[in-house]
Amino acid sequence: MGYSRAIVKGDWCFVSGVTGYDYATMQMPEEVAEQARNCFRTIEGVLKEAGFTMEDIVRVQYTVTDASFVERITPVLGEALGEIRPAATMVVAGLIRPEMNVEIEVTAMRG
């Protein structure tokens, strides 16, 4: 399967869905809020490496495995995005591993 963490096309950066692993330790926190924080840490690093910032995010898709997780991750979304107001979609669906409770995908645009 072909895969890239992110693709840059001109002024656009498409970041693949990111799950809550702490990639320094390859550990997955049990708590969904911590998983969401790890997602945003990874996303921020990927965007920076590609020459973008969090403020460039224009679209985000959240996937949670249980609707009750929405309330628990909402404060984390506020922490990560602040005044950034991207177009957003929240989906409740299964993920490929049972320890994964949230996946976040973003699109960023410069300019």
Rank of each mutant, 00 (worst) to 15 (best):
V76T: 11
V76M: 08
E55G: 14
A50T: 04
N38E: 11
E49G: 15
V46Q: 13
E55I: 06
I43Y: 01
Y62P: 01
A67E: 15
A50I: 03
I73A: 03
I43S: 00
N38Q: 12
Y62G: 06
N38D: 10
E71M: 12
Y62R: 07
V76R: 06
A50G: 04
E31Y: 14
E34W: 03
E31C: 07
V64C: 02
I73L: 02
G51P: 08
E30P: 05
T42Y: 07
K48Q: 12
R72V: 02
T42M: 05
E31L: 12
T53A: 06
V46A: 07
E44Y: 06
V76A: 08
A33F: 06
E71I: 03
R37G: 07
R72G: 00
P29V: 02
R72T: 03
F69Q: 03
V64D: 00
A50K: 12
Q35A: 03
A50R: 06
V76Y: 03
G45F: 02
N38G: 05
Y62D: 08
T65H: 03
I43E: 01
Y62T: 07
N38F: 13
L47I: 09
M28D: 01
P29W: 01
V58A: 04
T53K: 06
R59N: 12
E31W: 08
E34S: 06
Q61R: 14
V64Q: 00
R59H: 10
R41M: 12
F52V: 08
F52C: 08
F69W: 03
Q35L: 10
E30H: 11
T65L: 02
M28R: 02
A33G: 06
N38S: 10
E49S: 15
A50P: 04
I57S: 00
V60I: 13
A36S: 09
P75K: 14
I43H: 06
E55K: 11
E55A: 09
R37T: 07
E55S: 13
C39K: 02
M28K: 01
G51V: 10
T53E: 15
F40G: 10
R72H: 15
P75H: 12
T74K: 15
